[in-house]
């Protein structure tokens, strides 16, 4: 028989995980919106063809372009590049800001990735997004209209924007990665008393039910509710009334969620 205390603790953790998952779902567009503001401002200020932000994601390790702005920016969204390749990979891996111009003089330079976006730039400037001493992504700008290259002042300014982006991410990500949160807390609590595999077993017991299927009705409901935030008080009251009726009905029937 399992230890009842342990079962209760796991149950509590599962509930916390689900709540944080719901919260993350609610906030998904907040992070996106903040990042979008930053690339919009970057394009406007630099008078550039495009600006985009790629964030580091694991399994497999990759830098994923999340937001973009500018006439030539859209093609980058959703694209992933390995951290071991190209300017973006280099800037992420070393934390060192970098700008290249005359990119086209080298026909092999990153062309495959650039072509996937539908736009091959002549010049690129990229700076890392640093959160608590760790690179979490890269902000890049392509082709200024006013100059074929990037100046030191440009690099400095871009670093300021990157700082803003990193701060915005930190704020939006508090509940972002439930899995990682549990892993780090449990590993710290367990210290040397538990192996990595044991910690991982507990984490997966707690989080295995989360996000397994994006299309299940529960998550669709959460997404719908997240969209209701801009409704008027009157409309919200109406939705609440409807939900109460549904909840009363659910209370009588078998529980499905």
């Amino acid at each position: 028989m399992a230890d009842p205390g342990l079962t209760a603790a796991l149950q509590a953790l599962r509930q916390a995980a689900r709540r944080s998952s719901v919260a993350r779902r609610f906030d998904a567009d907040a992070e996106q919106a903040l990042l979008q503001t930053i690339v919009d401002a970057t394009v406007a200020l630099f008078e550039a063809e495009a600006s985009s932000i790629a964030l580091f994601e694991r399994d497999p390790d990759r830098l994923e372009f999340r937001v973009a702005a500018g006439a030539q920016g859209a093609g980058a969204i959703g694209l992933s590049v390995p951290p071991s390749k190209g300017i973006v990979g280099f800037v992420f891996s070393t934390g060192q800001p970098l700008a290249l111009s005359d990119v086209l003089s080298d026909p092999r330079f990153d062309r495959a990735t650039a072509e996937r976006t539908g736009y091959v730039p002549r010049s690129i400037a990229a700076v890392p997004l640093i959160d608590r001493d760790q690179p979490v992504g890269v902000l890049q700008v392509l082709d200024k209209h006013t100059s074929p290259t990037f100046s030191l002042r440009d690099m400095e300014l871009l670093a300021v924007f990157a700082r803003q982006a990193a701060a915005a991410l930190r704020a939006a990500r508090v509940t972002r990665d439930t899995h990682e949160l549990f892993r780090s807390v449990l590993a710290r609590l367990a210290g040397d008393d538990a192996s990595e595999a044991e910690v991982e077993a507990v984490v997966s017991a707690v989080t295995s039910q989360l996000d397994t299927d994006e299309e299940i009705p529960f998550w669709q409901l959460v997404d719908r509710v997240a969209q209701l935030r801009d409704l008027s008080d009157r409309e919200l009251r109406l939705v609440t009334d409807i939900l109460e009726v549904v909840a009363a009905h659910a209370g009588r029937g078998p529980r499905s969620v």
């Binding site: 970098l98 290249l100 111009s101 005359d102 003089s105 080298d106 290259t149």
Partner: peptide, 10 residues
């Protein structure tokens, strides 16, 4: 074997 033009403390 390529060449380019770059800016950075690097």
């Amino acid at each position: 074997g390529g060449t380019t033009v770059a800016t950075g403390n690097s």
